[in-house]
Amino acid sequence: MPLFKKVLYSTDFSPLAEVALEYVKKLKEAGEEEVVVVHVVDDLSVELPEGTDLIKEKEVYKILPEVDQEYLLDLVERLNSIKELLEKENLKVKTYLKYGNIPKQIVSVADEEKVNLIVMGAHGKGLLTELLLGSVSTDVIREAKCPVLIVKRREE
């Protein structure tokens, strides 16, 4: 059984998502070989088709205002630095920057890439820091077909 062979790491670049990255690295010892890093944007000033791939479909940038373009390029850079970090650990890495409904896109990349596990934080950048379980995590737990590792930080 592949179990932890191919892992999807979903990040909103929040501190807790960074903690989740430690788990992604650690799973290498349990047979992990490939990591798919995913970030989803739903807040551009122009509506794009659901599921637009903002790394591959470069032509859509032309219809976006400059602020959006800069915002997206910054996100691509952030994804690339995570990619480099994981490649240093000798993992194979793919990145996705998707447009659309956040949990829906995470689950759809998980399906397409046939990952064995999704790793994510229990909450993220949401304003309610005391939130026990964010809406994105809740929906991914409901909809994902594969196992999900929800990372929480212990209150010290």
Partner: peptide
């Protein structure tokens, strides 16, 4: 999951 304060693997 809400009651827990540590990571959970859901299969």
């Amino acid at each position: 999951i809400k009651a827990l304060d540590r990571p959970i693997l859901i299969v």
